[in-house]
Amino acid sequence: MTIVRRIARPLLAAPLIQSGVEVARHPASHAEAAKPVLNQVSGPLRLPNDPVMVVRSAGAVTAVAGSLLAVGRLPRLSALAIVATAPVVQPIEPFWKEKDPTLRREKQATFVKTLGLIGGALLATVDTQGKPSVAYRGRKARKAAAVAVREARVDASESLIEVRDSGRKATKKARKAAQQAAKDAGKTSRRARRKAEKVTAKQYAKAQKAARKAGDSLHV
């Protein structure tokens, strides 16, 4: 924790703790001011139909969360709890409806102070103390995944091209081998035919020679 956070968090938490304790101890007046908000959120959030108890509980949550924020324990979660209970613990009074100038100025000052506290708590919810936030890590992971997918597609395309080229080369090689085999077979066939013709010619010559000898023997 930096020195700025060590100072800023207790300063922000002090009025929140004070207001939370005050609301928890004396919830009746705050429950009356928070009734419009409670009437709207009690149904969806399934809150008890007891404004005083809800306001007291919200005050206690604000006081505890403010204390944790002041000492730097679970600061983002604590700030989120403060923001969630702010509509009940820090009700915004419509100062513009007040006709008394003095009361209007007082309510306006309270209104501005409340907005400032809520704004500070909102900033605390996103303070990651210099560490990458979950959203940032998520975006980085998505980018890394997208890059990996693109690289995988490129590798797959290159592999497909290599396989296709290898197939073409293998086909050409096989065709050449088949053609060469056919040529060799043709040459072998021609040689065999010539050899057979030579053998046949020799045998024919021998037969003629034997026939002439036989004829000469008969004449004698």
Results as ranks from 00 to 15, higher is better:
residue 32 E to S: 03
residue 140 K to D: 14
residue 42 S to W: 00
residue 58 A to L: 07
residue 129 Q to H: 12
residue 168 R to S: 12
residue 135 A to P: 01
residue 144 A to G: 04
residue 134 V to L: 01
residue 102 T to H: 04
residue 194 R to N: 15
residue 23 V to R: 03
residue 63 A to R: 06
residue 136 Y to H: 10
residue 52 V to Q: 07
residue 96 W to C: 03
residue 20 G to I: 06
residue 145 A to M: 06
residue 5 R to E: 07
residue 3 I to V: 13
residue 6 R to A: 07
residue 64 V to G: 03
residue 97 K to Y: 02
residue 157 S to Y: 15
residue 78 S to I: 10
residue 203 Q to K: 11
residue 50 D to N: 11
residue 9 R to H: 10
residue 113 K to T: 10
residue 119 G to C: 04
residue 40 Q to M: 01
residue 37 V to H: 11
residue 152 A to Y: 07
residue 4 V to H: 02
residue 219 H to Q: 12
residue 171 T to K: 06
residue 97 K to A: 14
residue 104 R to C: 12
residue 36 P to D: 04
residue 62 T to S: 01
residue 47 L to F: 02
residue 15 P to A: 09
residue 210 A to C: 14
residue 34 A to C: 05
residue 189 S to L: 10
residue 205 A to I: 10
residue 110 T to V: 08
residue 138 G to A: 15
residue 24 A to S: 07
residue 64 V to N: 04
residue 65 A to Q: 02
residue 106 E to Q: 10
residue 136 Y to V: 10
residue 47 L to A: 08
residue 191 R to N: 15
residue 146 A to M: 12
residue 171 T to S: 05
residue 204 Y to E: 14
residue 23 V to N: 11
residue 210 A to Y: 08
residue 123 L to S: 09
residue 168 R to L: 14
residue 148 A to R: 15
residue 162 E to M: 04
residue 201 A to F: 05
residue 37 V to T: 07
residue 135 A to L: 12
residue 214 A to Q: 06
residue 131 K to A: 07
residue 192 A to S: 09
residue 191 R to Q: 15
residue 75 P to S: 14
residue 76 R to Q: 15
residue 136 Y to S: 01
